[in-house]
Amino acid sequence: MKELLKYTLQLADNALILGHRISEWCGHGPVLEQDIALTNTALDHLGQARSFYQYAAEQFNALPVSEKEHFFTSSAIQSIIKDGKQVDEDDLAYLRDGWDFRNTLLVEQPNKDWAYTIIRSFFYDVFNFFFYTELQKSTDVTLSAIAEKSLKEVTYHLRWSSEWVIRLGDGTDESAQRINEAIANRWQFTGELLTMSEAEKAVATSGIGVDLEKIKTLWKERVAAVFAEANLDVPANGWMHQGGKEGKHSEHLGYILAELQFVQRAYPNMQW
């Protein structure tokens, strides 16, 4: 089912791109303990991405050739198909172009500073926590197994980012000002997390995917509760950017992929 493949890729891409962003902090954190914590979180996201990509590759390889050929526009992947070879997790991460990436716009936003990094993680972690909780009930055994395994990690991520939102909101004047600025600038990327794409709608109906309507209220309540403890105001709903889930990205994704895919693109068809 092609919708399931798109859905699996969306989950994989979100995890890969957020992990990539967080990994940019490695060696540059404000204090050694947090440097280590962030690196560990990046590793968790990467691990989740790999599980989803492996599953996506399995689904892709099972498609009839006629469907495979038109699924991605990347010539590098098309040449693998022409050679009659199978794709693997690395092909999906390293050889697809930006328009075939289905991650949300939020996760590709730059780190900027600690406040922007924390708020991006927090918005995403709240979503991810409720999302994986629901995905555990998926009728697709692979997705439900990945969700179950990942939920432990995500629970820790959410605790970590919630604590930092509180520290920054209820810390110094400077930290409160910085986190407020970060909220004001990143809020407009939260709507996409909870807006269902065509692929999401299709897999939700069949009991494979999560009905995001179910977690919308939970997301809002949790954000409001942590913000209240942090003395922060929840912004009015306002304009929300959309498009990432359909492959319409910000300028940032191109730079991420240029870096992430560099070695594989410069030296194609090699084992690393």
């Binding site: 940019e24 590793l43 990467l46 790999r50 690395d90 991460a93 560099f262």
Partner: peptide, 18 residues
């Protein structure tokens, strides 16, 4: 880390630097 040539190598490198 951001340029590691495979996902497995990336994971191992992240773990190492950590």
């Amino acid at each position: 880390i951001t340029r590691a040539p495979s996902l497995r190598r990336k994971a191992v490198l992240l773990a190492k630097v950590q």
